[in-house]
């Protein structure tokens, strides 16, 4: 399997990364180089093998459903590129 320019444009869009048209061609080559190398995984018979989803031999821990921290809106807003009264500001979304 290999990717073409349209696929790269599509996954860049899905990734929400603006990719200059000049970068599309080189990115096709870079990704195809990597996918060609990854292709060797197809040699292995994985019939009946379960996927490994956790290396920890422990049931996922659940915490109590209660508030442990809060009241720190000022601290959380301190890194916002643009904010107003504890709201994050973005370009207008709804007309």
């Amino acid at each position: 399997m290999s990717v073409d320019k349209d696929t790269v444009r599509r996954i860049a869009k899905l990734s929400r990364i603006a990719l200059d048209e000049a970068r599309v061609g080189p990115m096709v080559d870079e990704l195809n180089g990597i996918f060609a190398w990854v292709q060797q995984l197809n040699e292995v018979n994985v019939e009946g093998v379960p996927p490994l989803t956790s290396v920890v031999a422990q049931r996922l821990k659940m915490r109590d459903d209660k508030i442990t921290e809060g009241g720190n809106a000022n601290a959380l807003m301190a890194n916002a590129p643009e904010g107003e009264d504890h709201f994050f500001v973005v370009p207008k979304v709804v007309e």
């Binding site: 996954i11 860049a12 990734s15 990364i17 990854v38 994985v46 379960p50 490994l52 989803t53």
Partner: peptide
Amino acid sequence: ILIGTYVLSSGYYDAYYARAQKLRTL
């Protein structure tokens, strides 16, 4: 990020991501 998006995207998930997770078991 582009590689990751691709291997998780519809139609490619089984060929790449699911297979890799099985290799991880092996």
